[in-house]
């Protein structure tokens, strides 16, 4: 597959007409167009048309949340080893799609192909890093608690449920994966709004995820207008947490207010995506569950 409206691939004779890709939404493991039938033009920084992306509607957001909710039980119940392998499989698939993604990132971000390749490599490495946390985070974040009584008491991190993610607008792939991987590896399902101006790498990532053993509905990716969709996601009563890192600073206060309707966990940070990640994002989307049991014989 080749990204459309660019130079024809050298591997084909000039006489062959390129088969372009339709950029779609990713909901519940399927690739629908927006139920609204709308699309919007995605332009390169120099104004060239790169593609028409699906312009998701509020209904698409709600459908994606339904898909995310339906997938929670199965993904939460998957063993940590399995989650780690699934994330690692995404990294494997991503590596294989490296050329395509590098082209899309280069076009989206107006970077050199070399810089885009570095971004893709960093993205793969980041996924590998997070994949490794799947069966370790509970050991680091959990505890046995020495209470003053005849009880065995322990605390463990658990997924909070469905996490809404506003993906970074500037970093179309590395930033996207940096916010997508932590809630997924900790057992949540996600509804991601791709950066409005640079959504094409996100759609290709969805195609990678669809072939990487990620159960349907664990990752849902929407493209469209942030101003239209972000408030719907922030206010949705069946979303447990939201990552506002991709929202512009002035918009965060209002989205945060909307999130209070069902006491969402709200996370936002302005990370340098090229810097090594911390545990902050892993901690942000888990609940600590504490279990007491009597001790006796």
């Amino acid at each position: 597959m080749v990204s459309p409206r660019t130079s024809t691939s050298e591997s084909h004779p000039a006489s062959r007409l390129e088969v372009r890709k339709t950029y779609k939404l990713f909901i519940g493991g399927a690739f629908p167009r927006s139920e609204s039938g709308r699309s919007y033009p995605v332009l390169a920084p120099d104004g060239r048309l790169l593609a028409n992306a699906a312009r998701a509607s509020r209904k698409d957001v709600r459908d994606a949340v339904v898909a995310g909710r339906a997938a929670v039980a199965r993904w939460k119940a998957a063993t940590a080893y399995n989650k780690g392998q699934v994330l690692y499989r995404v990294a494997e698939m991503l590596e294989g799609h490296g050329d395509q993604l590098a082209r899309e990132v280069a076009e989206a971000e107006a970077s050199t192909i070399r810089a885009a390749r570095r971004a893709v490599a960093a993205t793969v490495d980041r996924l590998v890093w997070y994949a490794g946390w799947a069966d370790k985070f509970a050991q680091v974040a959990g505890s046995a608690n020495p209470v003053a009584g005849p009880f065995f008491n322990f605390s463990l991190p658990e997924p909070t449920g469905v996490v809404g993610v506003l993906a970074p607008r500037a970093s179309s792939l590395l930033g996207l994966v940096s916010v997508l991987a932590p809630p997924v590896v900790t057992g949540n399902t996600v509804v991601v709004l791709a950066g409005e101006e640079r959504p094409l790498p996100a759609v290709t990532l969805a195609e990678v995820i669809a072939t990487a053993d990620v159960p349907a509905g664990v990752v849902n990716i929407l493209t469209g207008r942030s101003a239209e969709l972000a408030p719907v996601l922030a206010a949705h009563m069946d979303v447990n947490a939201i990552d506002l890192s991709g929202a512009e600073q002035p918009d965060r206060a209002e989205l945060n207010r909307l999130a209070a309707g069902n006491v969402k966990r709200v996370f936002a940070s302005d990370d340098d995506w090229t810097a090594p990640p911390t545990l902050a994002r892993l901690r942000a989307f888990v609940e600590t569950k504490t279990v007491w049991h009597t001790v006796g014989c």
Partner: peptide, 15 residues
């Protein structure tokens, strides 16, 4: 917080 075969127990060491 989940209490098994007990209820309403609290301790400063217990989240």
């Amino acid at each position: 917080v989940v209490w098994a075969n007990t209820y309403n127990r609290f301790d400063p060491a217990s989240p």
